[in-house]
Amino acid sequence: MVLDEKDNRNVWEKIGDYFSANSIWMKWYCTGCGAIELPPTMTSRYDMERLGMGPMATPRQADVLLITGYLSTKTLRRVIYSYEQMNSPRFIVAFGSCTINGGIYYDSYATIGRLDKYLPVDLYIAGCMPRPEVVMNGFNELIKMIKKGQAKGWKHYQENYEWYKKNQLDSLGEVIIKDEFHE
């Protein structure tokens, strides 16, 4: 993404982005080990609520899908399903080196290499694991991006839906599974 893109939002969108930036509700997709870094981020030591952030129960309510760590093909299917249930504007924050390049699972037969092939990641937080300071820093970055209107992953996903869908199907075969356990 190019950072100095021209800002062509109207006033209402700017106000809306101000609200979005200051009230970040997250759905934590805690598949990997990164989830353990979130309780300290949330509780009294780092207290993410002062930035207006908080966990929500379902993807329908959430603005940010936080993916904390490696994604196997099985979990990726569920993550895609969850992401498509979210309401725009929606953002994805990917967490840890596994989502960037597969991390220590780079050669696994079941774990994907890079997440942004399949879903529009707005922000990566690198590290294995990223410490709470880094997480907070990353979210500060996200807030700035939303305020400036640069976190446009969801628009990107809409515009390049075919491309994402093709990548998903290439790697996963099918996204929606229907077998004897899912009837």
Binding site: S20, S23, E49, R50, G52, D63
Partner: peptide, 20 residues
């Protein structure tokens, strides 16, 4: 904890109304 800003609840509500 330090806690949210006092007007956080407004931000939350207006943000929710703004979304799809």
């Amino acid at each position: 904890r330090y806690g949210a800003r006092w007007y956080q609840q407004f931000l939350d509500i207006f943000k929710a109304l703004r979304k799809d």
